[in-house]
């Protein structure tokens, strides 16, 4: 369970919560580059809070977490910006900017961080949108597309700068099985093509079994992680009783 020096992402004795209220504590694990980690657990157990803490969006209540070997809480603003430049986020509601078209949404981080001319930024954005299957919807506004398309557009924006780590919060939530399956394929394809490390929060056990290499099960009763292993091992009786029960109930 302990973190390895080669890990791209680590947390050691991490405690997370809202305000001063601790939801989860004593979280210690690491993730090697190119792996897909799923964070699972019952609703309200702190999955999204953990993901935000790992990605440096929220400060943990105790313990340390590092991304690319840098602790985002103590890092200088320059180091922090450099780390965030190497990460991408997909939020639960996609969080696309509603006043911008899909192309403009994907172009936005490129404009902020790349010194490329408009023509090249446009070309890159079109490629990223084509990659997620939205080549013909580039000039649509977020309000004009379906939930599945919004998720894919959110992923296109998350991978705009070729991040080494992407954080996906409930990518399959609210999607039909077909769209959910397509999204799983897309995540696998991004990992295979770019070697991207993926941290995802999900309730969809079938999706986790399909794509995740490792799985952290958060146990709300114990207030800490109940298991950290390959998701398939949770299906076998005798292994990690609570995680096994969670997987068996939801499969």
């Amino acid at each position: 369970m302990s973190a390895d020096l080669a890990d791209i992402l680590t947390c050691d004795g991490l405690a997370i919560g809202h305000g001063s209220k601790v939801i989860m504590e004593r979280l210690t694990f690491g993730l090697a580059p190119g792996k897909i980690l799923a964070v699972v657990g019952p609703s309200g157990c702190g999955k999204s809070t953990l993901m935000r803490a790992l990605g440096g969006l929220d400060e943990p209540l105790a313990g340390t977490s590092t991304l690319f070997g840098i602790n985002l809480v103590t890092a200088s603003s320059k180091d922090r910006a450099a780390v965030l430049r190497r990460t991408g986020f997909l939020f639960q509601g996609s969080a696309l900017f509603s006043s911008l078209t899909l192309r403009e949404n994907v172009e936005m981080p490129m404009r902020e961080f790349l010194k490329a001319p408009q023509r090249e930024i446009r070309q890159l954005a079109e490629y990223k949108l084509a990659l997620v299957g939205l080549a013909d919807a580039m000039d649509k506004l977020p309000s004009e597309i379906s939930g599945g398309m919004a998720k894919r557009a959110g992923i296109a924006r998350a991978i705009a700068l070729d991040p080494e780590v992407i954080f996906l919060d409930e990518p399959n939530a609210g999607l039909d099985p077909l769209s959910s399956g397509r999204l799983d394929e897309l995540i696998l394809r991004i990992r295979e093509s770019f070697g991207t490390t993926v941290v995802l929060v999900s309730h969809e056990v079938s999706s986790i079994l399909r794509i995740a290499d490792l799985c952290v099960y958060l146990d709300p009763d114990a207030g800490t992680m109940g298991a950290y292993a390959a998701p398939k091992t949770f299906l076998q009786a005798g292994n990690h009783a609570k995680a096994h029960a969670f997987f068996k109930q939801t499969v």
Binding site: Y127, L131, G133, A135
Partner: peptide
């Protein structure tokens, strides 16, 4: 090839 093939959309 992925980008070429992936241009499948939801009823546009």
């Amino acid at each position: 090839r992925i980008a070429e093939k992936a241009s499948v959309n939801d009823h546009l």
